[in-house]
């Protein structure tokens, strides 16, 4: 789908956190719960570098 989160963040001048949250909305989420939709509060791991490293394989 994407090459690199940091690369895209730099190219579009959009923070990585915004890109991850947008991607989450596009992709949805999987869970064991039996429903079509879920809602929750999300606190992303502290630190953009850590997130970039974790998500890198997607992009």
């Amino acid at each position: 789908m994407l090459k690199d989160l940091k690369f895209l963040s730099k190219m579009y001048e959009i923070p990585s956190i915004d890109i991850i949250l947008m991607d989450l909305n596009i992709s949805g989420v999987s869970s064991d719960i039996d429903a079509d939709r879920v809602r929750f509060n999300l606190r992303l791991l502290n630190g953009e570098l850590l997130l970039c490293s974790a998500i890198k394989k997607r992009f």
Binding site: L21, V38, R39
Partner: peptide, 24 residues
């Protein structure tokens, strides 16, 4: 880090997964 309110579609094919209190 801030809390973000999410209301999302469940997709079996998503690379994002919730298990207990963690997002993977």
């Amino acid at each position: 880090m801030e809390n973000y309110y999410c209301a999302l579609q469940l997709r079996r094919d998503s690379d994002y997964r919730i298990s207990e209190d963690k997002l993977y």
